[in-house]
Design a protein around this nucleic acid. Structure first.
Lengths: 215, 215
DNA sequence: CGAAAAAGTTAGGCAATCCAAACTACTCGG
DNA sequence: CCGAGTAGTTTGGATTGCCTAACTTTTTCG
């Protein structure tokens, strides 16, 4: 298993390949690799029994591919947690480091890191850390953008995008915080919220609110 | 810079390429790569100004190559220290993990790790950790095997070899311990030593004693 | 010294992975 | 329901880094 193959598996996983078919194009865009190269690599992964590929119809993960991808996500998120909790990185900056380290992490190292971090359940931006056997619970897909005015919600998870996370860091929002939704400004305007126990209003842009998942 | 090029630089450094010429053969044996492939890679490194290569005469590092190699050694040893001090690896097991991680370590990560470990001076088997600018002090080249009977010496550094380190772990020897040399058994027999403040005799094999450096 | 051995270099190939371009198969609007 | 546009696949070519085998240079030793 090469790092590149791992990247293919992981992006298919992230695009939902565990429960639906993913298109060549999505992978191509996600990895920034030409479509032809994607087809080629997919057929190798299919030969190895990691994905199922029906020509022209889409690509999805086999159970084996799913497990492998979950292990990668586990390693990735353990590193992110380490970087934030121990090395004092801010949570917007950890993604790219973790992206690289995950490919070089033995199972033994992942276990040792997990112990050292005292078995964290979530990474810094709220993603669930799969268990060592590749299991992971379902996560919420409800967006902050879709919360009702007046509702109190818990921020669960932010998409792992540098720009978004930098923005949220400035707004001092973190996963697992409880916030109250005050109102939705019209015409794709911001969602106005208050942090629990404060009455300071925070404007979360329309776009950002579509990248924040709530419980 | 690819990981393989880094491996070439590092082995040249370890073979003494900072202060003398290293042969193709040493590199070939050290990396387990065919001599022809070594020649090829060396000429690429020479093009990049990292090594100087005089055909048939040997290979040595330029200042630039030296600095780069020292940074790699730094990263390697920081990881080793982390694995032993924080993740409770035993010191015989860290080399291979560190070997992989070092190639994926940004300068920022190395700095953060160094801070977190509180600027260790030595890695677990006693090697000096070069500073961030690639500087590193001279180290002792005196072998335990060459100590006089009756002499008290401090163990400085063990060669980074899994088999050796496992053996030394069994003997409960660690860098920076002071030991007294009792006698050298004849015919390449063991060197008999005592740990400071104990009168328990420890036999260190002839070969191992040639892989242990003392102050 | 001079030839065999050792060390080093060169040449031809192979595998992985990428790309661009050509070709094929869907799909959607008129 | 057909043709244009989009998506997907195939093909041919580049690059990196490895190998083996052949060739060249240097060293060693009788």
């Amino acid at each position: 298993m090469t790092p590149m193959k791992e990247d293919y598996l992981k992006i298919i996983f992230e695009l939902g390949g565990s429960h639906k078919k993913v298109s060549n194009k999505e992978i191509s865009l996600g990895l920034g690799i030409a479509a032809g190269s994607v087809t080629e690599m997919i057929s190798k992964l299919a030969d190895e029994g990691l994905v199922v590929h029906e020509p022209y119809a889409g690509i999805s993960l086999t159970a084996k591919g799913q497990k492998y991808a979950a292990e990668l996500v586990r390693k990735h998120r353990l590193w992110e947690t380490f970087l934030v909790d121990k090395l004092n990185y801010n949570f917007a900056d950890v993604h790219s480091e973790a992206e690289i380290l995950e490919h070089q992490t033995s199972d033994r190292l992942a276990t040792a890191l997990d112990d050292y971090l005292q078995h964290p359940k979530h990474c810094p931006h709220g993603g669930v850390i799969p268990s060592a056997n590749g299991k992971f619970p379902d996560v919420s897909h409800r967006l902050l953008a879709d919360a009702e005015d007046g509702e109190e919600v818990e921020l669960e998870r932010f998409l792992d995008n540098h720009e978004l996370l930098t923005y949220l860091e400035e707004l001092q929002l973190r996963p697992s915080e409880t916030v109250k939704v005050i109102r939705h400004e019209p015409f794709e305007g911001p969602i106005v919220i208050e942090k629990d126990g404060s009455d300071k209003k925070i404007n979360v842009s329309y776009k950002a609110a579509h990248n924040i998942f709530i419980k």
